[in-house]
Design a protein around this nucleic acid. Sequence first.
DNA 1: TTACACGGAATGAACATTCATTCCACGAAA
DNA 2: TTTCGTGGAATGAATGTTCATTCCGTGTAA
Lengths: 197, 197
Amino acid sequence: MTPARPSQQRLVVTDKREAIMAAALGLFVERGFYGTAVPEIAERAEVGAGTIYRYFESKEALVNELYRREKMRFAAHVLNEMPGGPARELFRTMWMKMAKFAGENLEGFVFLELHHHARYLDAESRALEQRMLDMFSQVTIAAQARGEVKAGPPRLLMGFVLGAFIGVIRCCLENDQPVPSADWKLAEQCAWEAIRA
Amino acid sequence: MTPARPSQQRLVVTDKREAIMAAALGLFVERGFYGTAVPEIAERAEVGAGTIYRYFESKEALVNELYRREKMRFAAHVLNEMPGGPARELFRTMWMKMAKFAGENLEGFVFLELHHHARYLDAESRALEQRMLDMFSQVTIAAQARGEVKAGPPRLLMGFVLGAFIGVIRCCLENDQPVPSADWKLAEQCAWEAIRA
DNA sequence: TTACACGGAATGAACATTCATTCCACGAAA
DNA sequence: TTTCGTGGAATGAATGTTCATTCCGTGTAA
């Protein structure tokens, strides 16, 4: 599928692949999966329609690859180098990392949001999603055990916080504005007060 | 468009229209607008594909009518008979009314969520959305003025709270479970602590 | 000269919508 | 009571369009 070859060859190949993925990401965010035609993706990526099928087995394979890539980017960005220490610190760090990621890669974040649980995601994509949720769960449970976070179903608290985060993004998305830094801080304070014990 | 006639005749007509809307609501929630074929809607509604076009001008007109109907149901349910008094009371009442609505009409709620800001919504549908947001804004601003709710952009706080609400629903949706009453109460308490001054 | 990446026209499937036809309820005539 | 004519609701095969995918001629690098 991916034509493999060393050095230069490889670079050219990667460029087209990258262009296709970037174009698809943008269009899927704007119009959704079924609302986007493959030839449209080709046009935006400035490649022939057939070329897409040199790099991706199908439209579905493309959306799944995109999903996994963005999900892993997100995970790498947010979960790396988490501090130990009190839950308050940990929470602030996580929230702000998520905010940073969303700010730098808004399209990717919205894409993940939009395609969360879509029917065309395959088993591998779903498994990845599950693993990430489990990591968040563990952090939550640990903080609850230390009495720093409210008792209650961890998934509920996580859903609450993640939902609030998305709500903040969406509210600023409506004006095509990036979320101001002050707003992120306010929202973080709100979110912490929501869940702290 | 709607054939008018008294008594029985009228009832039959309404039944088909209703069947089509119910079928479309379910399918749009499951597969999205573009992911749903009109003949599929017809099949689930147990009518001929052509019949749909007796009642709705197009697929787009159908989704818009559905959107407005659900939006107004939501508004009627949530905004009626709001108490005066302290913001704490008002907030609890609103939250719980929203929870009740979502519990009784989950499909409708998810539909609104999914189609929020979709490109095929027409001007009228968008205007309706805007009006509702404005009403919430006014309530928020009033509570801020009385020092009961944190200062900050009203839209931000609303986005936060509504996002959190949706997050709670989504987290329970994943197990096909209705949200337990205790969880709604916990989430309400979290949400209030998030925004209270 | 070979091999292969590429573009974009070609293809067949699936779609939204239309329309010629069927079906049915009802009222009038016998 | 039965029969028949009529209007309009309902239908689903037919239509034209759009789509995902394939195919093939071209250009280019080795």
